[in-house]
Simulated scan of single mutants.
Amino acid sequence: MTLRPVETWMTDMDGVLVHEEVPIPGATEFIDRLKASGRRFLVLTNNSIFTPRDLRARLLGSGIDVPESAIWTSALATAQFLGDQRPGGTAYVVGEAGLTTALHDVGYVMTDRDPDYVVLGETRTYSFEAITKAIRLVAAGARFIATNPDPSGPSQQGMLPATGSVAALISTATGRSPYFIGKPNPLMMRSALNRIEAHSETTAMVGDRMDTDVVSGLEAGLQTCLVLTGSTRREDVERFPYRPTRVFDSVADLVDLV
């Protein structure tokens, strides 16, 4: 399968551009080529901990210069969704600055008194007290939203529980499942397309995971490029009932396609 002409690009961050703080070979050249070409692009991440400004600084520290405006997070997508659904609403938030800042920016008030929503995001400091409060509010009728379904995330010390694992805890206690906003929900991709006024038929999604990046791109009507520098190995691809448009060893192989 070959790529149709691509006018706009979307790429995952972890596993495609960086491993933690270490740049993946070719990532700097890929981003530089995108900027030089004038093509619109977005770096997407399910991580809701950091603001786009924080993420820009982290990438810059790895030698990858991505404009703040070209970073789209599950926190931003969640805030946009809630702002559209219930403008000027209230939320009890379990998360960090990336999520609370995004919600404040769309006019939301943070409260634990009869909130419209309980919003669960990623944090490195989940507390039993905060989770218990979330459980009680969801049980009392607050609508349950989670930024993404990722069950675990990487760290330099090893695997960490992520949003999906804590969401499962709250769901088990309350019998209420959350609505997940981030990948693989194609809503994340659609909001990103709208952000840069892109058309799905001329946009490609670059990712390292079949179960998030590729399937969400596929369901949103994008071409999909799987790179083998992250979670999915080449031999894993055939296990899935869907396929990416193309498979590449790394993002370095995409530089000449921009």
Score class of each variant (00 low, 15 high):
187 L>Q: 08
187 L>K: 06
187 L>I: 13
188 M>V: 09
188 M>P: 05
188 M>E: 09
189 M>G: 02
189 M>K: 05
189 M>R: 02
190 R>E: 14
190 R>T: 15
190 R>A: 10
190 R>G: 06
191 S>Q: 15
191 S>I: 07
191 S>R: 12
192 A>C: 09
192 A>V: 04
193 L>P: 04
193 L>K: 07
194 N>L: 15
194 N>K: 14
194 N>W: 12
195 R>W: 13
195 R>Q: 15
196 I>A: 02
196 I>Y: 01
196 I>D: 01
196 I>L: 06
197 E>W: 10
197 E>Q: 14
197 E>G: 13
197 E>K: 15
197 E>V: 15
198 A>L: 12
198 A>N: 07
198 A>Y: 02
198 A>R: 06
199 H>T: 13
199 H>M: 13
199 H>Y: 13
200 S>E: 14
201 E>W: 12
201 E>S: 12
201 E>G: 09
201 E>R: 11
202 T>Q: 13
202 T>N: 09
202 T>R: 14
203 T>E: 03
203 T>A: 08
203 T>L: 02
204 A>C: 11
204 A>Q: 08
206 V>Y: 05
206 V>S: 04
206 V>H: 00
206 V>D: 01
207 G>K: 00
207 G>F: 03
207 G>V: 03
207 G>I: 03
208 D>N: 10
208 D>A: 04
208 D>F: 05
209 R>E: 08
209 R>W: 08
209 R>Q: 14
209 R>D: 06
209 R>I: 07
210 M>C: 10
211 D>L: 14
211 D>G: 12
211 D>E: 15
211 D>S: 13
211 D>Y: 15
211 D>V: 12
212 T>D: 00
213 D>G: 03
213 D>P: 10
213 D>W: 02
214 V>L: 08
214 V>E: 05
215 V>A: 10
215 V>L: 11
215 V>I: 12
215 V>S: 06
215 V>H: 03
215 V>M: 09
215 V>K: 06
215 V>F: 07
216 S>E: 11
216 S>K: 08
216 S>R: 10
216 S>C: 11
217 G>E: 03
217 G>T: 05
217 G>Y: 02
217 G>R: 04
217 G>H: 03
217 G>N: 10
217 G>S: 10
218 L>S: 13
219 E>D: 11
220 A>V: 04
220 A>R: 00
222 L>A: 04
222 L>E: 04
222 L>D: 00
223 Q>P: 05
223 Q>F: 01
226 L>C: 01
226 L>T: 00
226 L>Q: 00
226 L>N: 03
227 V>E: 01
227 V>K: 02
227 V>I: 11
228 L>Y: 06
228 L>W: 06
229 T>I: 07
229 T>R: 00
229 T>Q: 02
230 G>D: 05
230 G>T: 02
231 S>K: 10
231 S>D: 08
231 S>C: 11
232 T>Q: 00
232 T>L: 00
233 R>H: 14
233 R>F: 14
233 R>P: 08
233 R>K: 12
234 R>L: 15
234 R>E: 12
234 R>Y: 14
235 E>I: 15
236 D>T: 05
236 D>N: 11
237 V>R: 06
237 V>G: 09
237 V>D: 07
237 V>M: 09
238 E>V: 13
